[in-house]
Amino acid sequence: MKMYLAVLRLRLNMGMQYRAAALAGVATQFFWGFIIIMVFEAFYEHAAQTPPISLKELIQYIWLQQAFLVFVMMWFRDNELFDLITSGNIAYELCRPSGLYGFWYAKLLAQRLSSALLRCFPILIVAYLLPEPYNLEPPPSIWAFLLFLSALLLGLLLLVAISMFLYISVFITLSPMGSLLVFGVLSEFFAGLVIPVPLMPVWLQKIAYVLPFRWTADFPFRVYSGHIPEQDAIIGILVQLSYLTVLVWMGRKALNGVLKKVVVQGG
């Protein structure tokens, strides 16, 4: 645990070195959020029937998405790890006195966490201060907020667990491009980053609900706005937990499998 914290602190420090970049990133995401909101505003203006999610809820959804983008974005990746795997220098990592899965998991988690800590607060604060109807509102109840927090964190853990498969797949493909592409496009679409899940056609929603991706982004954001009621949220969190357990378990298995192969090859 101490080691994981050390990794996190190192990352935060490194992040601070690039604070101008972080500031620029905040500005970019802010602009982005605005554009998306205005597009939806225009769509909603003459909507024939009432959309399944209100504009207000959608705005919450979008701001949270912008603030916690690094929690939910598959493209956010660690090229060091890719290099490590493709160059065969993985041998060094195997010398470390800890399980590889745990170590990588911590590393990836720390990267996302530190990046998000630097970026989310400015966005959240400014979004709160915006004039109606563009502002971010406090969640409907303290319960919704607490549920949102746990859902968000579980979502993050879940996303890292999913992204571990990305790195594992590179052991087999030896080129991160293909995997990144498949994971990136599919996961972002089904996590509701392109269009929010409630606005998808019903048949597509059904697919999205089965896949694990929406639990990383779509679910916590809708818990926050109250679009998902508290009761359902608790069930959702249980689903998140079970997904997490299964994915981590499978990830460990898969990593051990590919590592064995590496050792046999003498790479």
Binding site: A42, F43, H46, A48, P51, L199, P201, L204
Partner: peptide, 9 residues
């Protein structure tokens, strides 16, 4: 999909 739902903008 957005146009499918909303028809126009």
């Amino acid at each position: 999909f957005l146009f499918e739902r909303f028809g126009q903008i």
